[in-house]
Amino acid sequence: MVQSRIGKEGFAALCLRLRAKGINNTDLLNAIEQTPRHLFVPSEHVASAWSSRSLPIECGALIEGVDLAAEIISLMKLKSSHRVLEIGTGSGFTAAVMGRLTERVLTVDRYKTLVNLAQERMDKLALRNVIVRQADGSMGLQGEGTFDRILVTAAFSSMPRIYAEQLVSGGMMLAPIVGDDGIARMVKLTKSGSRFERVELFDTPYQPMVPQMAQIL
């Protein structure tokens, strides 16, 4: 099949690009390979599914380039016992890959259309440990306890303390923060007791967080 050939060639090229960056985690690469990228992009963009550039998806949202998704997941240093919270489901690709590496992933998005499509993909891939929910990610997520890792894929103007408080001690949060120059940069926050260590990582293409849940889309 043409799709199978494109997928194999795209994954092989991705592996070469990641190894050039020093990313060669076998578990991560296996999880990506087992998550058919073409299922997560609109049909007109299937040929570019494995590219490093962001692609448009439903509701005016974007799916990040596969390189960026892999790099972010690698930075999270996931373990099989981890509980992960993702703010901004988008296509669901990142959540699906993380679901293969962890005990449980709870991913939320404000767009009902994106939530429904992501849930269909999780069902198709039999990823029962990935929970997709419609929620306003700007307001925090109450009643779910604490998480080992939190990933935010929409940019805040400052590090969202409300989510940092939902981390376990030793937990890590990755979130894009928009600086005074208007550029979003991925920031890593590591919790140690009641203290937080903050490290700026790299510029990202993520868009600003928009509060309030979409009622129709």
Rank of each mutant, 00 (worst) to 15 (best):
M1Y: 06
M1Q: 11
V2G: 04
Q3N: 13
R5V: 13
F11L: 15
L14H: 03
L16N: 08
L16D: 10
L16A: 14
I23Y: 09
N24K: 11
N25H: 08
T26G: 06
D27W: 01
L28E: 08
L28S: 00
L29R: 08
I32C: 06
Q34F: 02
Q34D: 13
P42G: 05
P42T: 03
S43T: 15
E44A: 11
E44Q: 15
V46G: 03
A47F: 10
A49G: 12
S51D: 12
R53M: 10
A61L: 13
A61K: 13
L62A: 10
L62T: 15
L62G: 02
I63A: 08
E64V: 05
V66E: 10
V66A: 02
A70R: 05
I73S: 08
L75A: 14
K79P: 00
K79Q: 14
S80D: 09
S80Q: 12
S81I: 07
S81L: 05
H82E: 06
L85R: 02
L85E: 06
G88T: 08
T89P: 05
G90T: 04
G90D: 00
G92P: 07
G92S: 08
A96R: 05
V97A: 07
V97M: 09
M98S: 06
G99T: 03
L101A: 05
R104W: 02
L106A: 01
T107M: 09
R110P: 04
T113N: 11
V115H: 07
A118C: 02
Q119D: 13
Q119Y: 04
R121I: 03
M122C: 04
M122Y: 00
K124E: 14
A126N: 13
L127A: 08
V130N: 10
V130P: 03
V130S: 04
V130R: 07
R133N: 06
Q134V: 09
Q134S: 11
A135Q: 13
D136Q: 03
D136A: 09
G140C: 11
G140R: 10
L141K: 07
L141E: 01
Q142W: 07
Q142K: 13
G143R: 07
E144C: 07
F147G: 05
I150W: 06
V152C: 15
A154S: 12
A155P: 01
S157G: 06
S157F: 08
P160H: 05
P160S: 10
I162H: 12
S169V: 04
S169D: 15
M172H: 01
M173E: 03
A175E: 04
I177F: 00
V178G: 03
V178L: 15
V178I: 15
D181S: 14
G182D: 11
I183M: 13
A184D: 00
M186N: 04
M186I: 07
T190P: 02
S192H: 12
R195H: 11
F196P: 00
E197Q: 12
V199I: 14
E200W: 05
L201W: 09
F202C: 02
F202I: 05
D203F: 03
Y206R: 07
M209E: 09
M209K: 04
Q212R: 15
Q212M: 12
Q212W: 09
M213H: 01
A214L: 15
